[in-house]
């Protein structure tokens, strides 16, 4: 038997919003440690890795490891039926072919349950090598979303160049060219508004805007975003989910022909 409950549906709703445009379907791997999801987008250019720890749930029970193939479009439709402050419970029997979502209003006067068929998805799991990144940038998530949105008007690629002075985002195309430079913040009163850069050596990489903009759908989950870069390896865009886990997006760089 698998059962996982969150006292507020809002986080799970945001998690679905963060992945449903990039992935059509994915397997939720459940164990007593929590829920893991790893899937590539259809073009195999990016990879989503989601971790929701069992201790972040208000109730979590997983008697036997369980892999649930979910159609994320359908799951998102079901979660749209929950209010942010509803309690949400996911339930599935061990060798189930369906999963049930139960939503309970705060005053317990309204209880809804939705049963969704599970899918048999072939599990292609990728090994992600431990990497000591040359540059790690932490910045406000809203700022990163704004930069990706603004620059995608000027070109279909963004060059991210990180030095000890700061991080520069550039784009160019038919309209013209655009550069946004962020300096490392010296002192801010609110930690979450800081721009911090840990640099071992400078890095400059080119990425497709459409994937970066898809990743920023996770912005509502976290005040900050972390960008990890090294030459000729995928970018990692990480959003921490407070008290529950994280979502990491990996994006393969574009390279000169």
């Amino acid at each position: 038997m698998f059962e996982a409950r969150l006292n507020a549906a809002t986080t799970l709703k945001k998690v679905l919003d963060a992945i449903k445009d990039l992935l059509n379907e994915a397997t939720f791997d459940c164990s007593d440690a929590g829920i893991q999801l790893q899937a590539m987008d259809n073009s195999h250019v990016s990879l989503v890795s989601l971790t929701l720890r069992s201790d972040g749930f208000d109730k979590f029970r997983c008697d036997r490891n369980l892999s649930m193939g979910m159609n994320l479009g359908s799951m998102s439709k079901i979660l749209k039926c929950a209010n942010n402050e509803d309690t949400v419970t996911m339930k599935a029997q061990d060798n189930a072919d369906t999963v049930t979502f139960m939503f309970e209003s705060q005053n317990h006067e309204k209880v809804s349950d939705y049963e969704m068929k599970l899918m048999n998805l072939d599990q292609e799991h990728l090994g992600i090598p431990e990497t000591d990144y040359s540059c790690v940038v932490r910045m406000p998530a809203m700022e990163f979303a704004r930069i990706c949105r603004d620059l995608s008007q000027f070109g279909e690629s963004v060059i991210i160049c990180c030095t000890k002075e700061g991080v520069k985002f550039s784009a160019s195309g038919d309209v013209g060219s655009a550069n946004i430079k962020l300096a490392q913040t010296s002192s801010v009163d609110k930690e979450e508004e800081a721009v911090t850069i840990e640099m071992q050596e400078p890095v400059s990489l080119t990425f497709a805007c459409r994937y970066l903009n898809a990743f920023t759908k996770a912005t509502p989950l976290s005040n900050q975003v972390q960008l990890s870069m090294s030459a000729d390896v995928p970018l990692v865009v990480e959003y921490r989910i407070p008290d529950l886990g994280h979502i990491r997006y990996y994006l393969a760089p574009k390279i000169e022909e």
Binding site: M40, H125, G127, P129, Y250, L251, K254, I255
Partner: peptide, 13 residues
């Protein structure tokens, strides 16, 4: 510029 795929960096386990 040509777009690489993630599978050219991460191997299937």
């Amino acid at each position: 510029m040509s777009q690489r795929t993630i599978t050219s960096f991460f191997t299937k386990t």
